[in-house]
């Protein structure tokens, strides 16, 4: 992951240098959503950010910004106190009462989709670029990102080895595991990495019974590498009765991915998927 972070930084540095200086109309920007923040930085507009939400932890510089809280529980006065001129918010930010107050205060508010299809990600980047008056830079970033994602998607689809079944575990609590079904970002990431989601007969995240986990027979367990319950070691994970008899346990195939790639899709997603693919298939 370190490698990837470095690569991401290099990409962004490139993007930042490639841009001609533009006349900025909006200087004080509040970014809500980890993908949104990342794209703002990738467009070289990180210095215009005055605050972020709790999930925005990449790049490192974002951590130094004031945190206005969890994106679905924004406090109206808290947001006003950082004095933003423009709010770039991931879809689902709220609550609605807060958004109404912010609109009453005449703050520009741009909502950005959370889709993970290549075209949707590109559209999100263009929309952010337009709001920041960086349309040209955004166009470049959007098309490279879209191409990279499409290439990765094609590579994943045309991969001719035996496909491995991947089970994404969101959290383990009291020996119960919460896993991803279909229609989630984790599901999209598994597909993008050329794997097959081990559990597609339900939508969203669900807590799984021990037997259901065993019968899903995943070849690979995928988790987020953050602290807390997500940070379990391979020994701990495969010691659980529900996972001990899975094919993944035989090869001790536990992969970790930065939670940011599960939160939203952005310029680094294709690279992360490629790396996950290599990790899963052991290239």
């Amino acid at each position: 992951m370190n490698m990837l972070t470095r690569r991401g930084f290099a990409l962004m540095a490139l993007a930042a240098f490639a841009l001609p200086a533009q006349a900025d109309t909006t200087q004080k920007v509040l970014s809500i959503g980890s993908d949104v923040t990342e794209i703002v930085y990738a467009l070289g507009a990180g210095d215009r950010l005055i605050a972020r939400d709790t999930t925005s932890r990449f790049p490192e510089a974002a951590n130094a910004l004031p945190d206005v809280g969890y994106m679905r529980r924004l406090s109206p006065e808290g947001v006003l106190s950082v004095d933003p001129e423009l709010i770039l918010a991931s879809e689902g930010s709220g609550p609605l009462e807060t958004i109404e107050v912010l609109q009453a205060a005449d703050i520009d508010y741009v909502t950005l989709g959370r889709g993970y299809a290549p075209a949707e990600v590109a559209a999100k980047i263009r929309k952010i670029g337009d709001a920041l008056d960086l349309s040209e830079a955004a166009e470049t970033l959007a098309s490279t990102t879209e191409t990279a994602l499409n290439d990765q998607l094609n590579a994943a689809e045309n991969f001719d080895g035996a496909r491995k079944k991947v089970m994404f575990i969101l959290s383990i609590r009291d020996g119960k595991i919460t896993v991803s079904g279909a229609g989630t970002n984790a599901d999209a990431m598994i597909k993008l990495a050329g794997g097959e989601n081990a559990l597609t007969d339900f939508q969203g995240y669900k807590t799984l019974s021990d037997e259901a986990a065993s019968t899903a027979a995943p070849d690979v367990i995928l988790m987020m590498n953050s602290t807390g319950s997500h940070g379990a070691s391979a020994a701990e994970v495969f010691a659980m009765p529900s996972l001990a008899i899975t094919p993944a346990a035989e090869t001790l195939n536990l992969q970790k991915i930065d939670g940011i790639f599960i939160n939203g899709s952005g310029p680094r997603t294709a690279g992360a998927a490629k790396q996950l693919h290599d990790a899963i298939y052991g290239n």
Binding site: T54, V68, G69, S75, V79, S81, V82
Partner: peptide, 11 residues
């Protein structure tokens, strides 16, 4: 609640 972790808010 609105002051202690400003600009975020504690329930």
């Amino acid at each position: 609640s609105r002051q202690i972790v400003a600009p975020a808010e504690l329930p």
